[in-house]
């Protein structure tokens, strides 16, 4: 039987690796230079965090960190499918960024108390760096939610599109009961989910985006109609969402967007196994 710690490390590392890879696609394309540096730096941090986690996993698994990052078949990746979604536009990228980084913060804070020493040490380092990601995500959340109307409209739509997939960041892990009983997980994914929901729910309420959560899964029809105050009444996007649509990543089941990403990310590794620079 595989070490239960591996399922946790694969989930954490693959989220960071795949999201980092996606964010790196923005390099050179962001609307202005400061933001280009920001998204590129965040991508760099996320991939570095994946490396820290894969270094730890390498000792358990036996494969070297590069082989773990780039030498696995697509079905062996355990990232949530939110992370592999195309960047789409700036609104979706920032909506995912905000939802993901709050989720990441919740689980990293919980893991500060893990009985797994190497992971606890890595988490302490990651939290010091993720703080800047969270500040960046929150700043954009407030800025876009404040309008103008088109920005608020598109951001609200993007949040509605991403929320179901973001919930799947908290899909149960393989052997989660063992991880909890051994104190490797001080709290389980369900508790993380509740904490995250309370946190983002409060912020969504404050800016009048509460329908992003409340209408989840309820079939509604209608267009996105901003009122004079910039509030959004309803959206077709929300209506189309199915709560479970984002699940499967933790079992190695991915959306159609994963394989093209994987092909690109692993091109060099597959063409020149063991290449170094």
């Amino acid at each position: 039987m595989s070490d239960p710690r591996a399922s946790l490390l694969f989930a954490l590392a693959d989220d960071e690796l795949i999201l980092g890879h996606r964010l790196s696609e923005w390099t050179g394309w962001v609307p202005y230079i400061e933001e280009d540096l920001a998204l590129s730096s965040i991508a760099q941090d996320e991939i570095a965090h994946a490396r820290m986690l894969l270094d730890i996993l390498s000792v358990i698994d036996g494969r070297d960190p590069d082989a773990l990052a780039l030498g696995r078949a697509p079905g062996e990746y355990r990232n949530a499918i939110l992370c592999e979604q195309p960047n789409t536009d700036f609104a979706f990228t920032l909506a995912r960024h905000w939802l993901y980084d709050h989720a990441d913060d919740v689980r990293l804070r919980a893991l500060q108390e893990s009985s797994f020493k190497e992971l606890r040490e890595a988490v302490a380092v990651m939290l010091l760096e993720e703080r800047y990601h969270l500040e960046h995500a929150d700043a954009w959340f407030r800025r876009l939610a404040d309008g103008p109307v088109d920005a608020r409209h598109r951001f609200g739509e993007a949040l509605a599109n991403a929320i179901g997939m973001a919930e799947a960041l908290f899909e149960p892990l393989d052997d989660e009961s063992v991880l909890v009983s051994e104190g490797i997980l001080p709290t389980g994914t369900e508790e993380w989910h509740d904490e995250w929901l309370a946190r983002i729910g409060g912020m969504l309420d404050e800016v009048g985006f509460d329908q992003v959560l409340t209408s989840q899964g309820e079939p509604e029809t209608g267009e996105m109609v901003p009122t004079s105050t910039g509030e959004i009444e309803s959206t077709e996007q929300i209506a189309r969402r199915v709560p479970s649509s984002g699940a499967g990543g933790r079992r190695g089941e991915h959306s159609e967007h994963f394989e093209p990403l994987w092909l690109e990310m692993t091109t060099l590794y597959r063409a020149h196994p063991g290449a170094r620079w």
Partner: peptide
């Protein structure tokens, strides 16, 4: 910006 030309620098 909190993000600069290297991870340890701001602008």
């Amino acid at each position: 910006s909190a993000f600069g030309p290297t991870p340890c620098r701001t602008v």
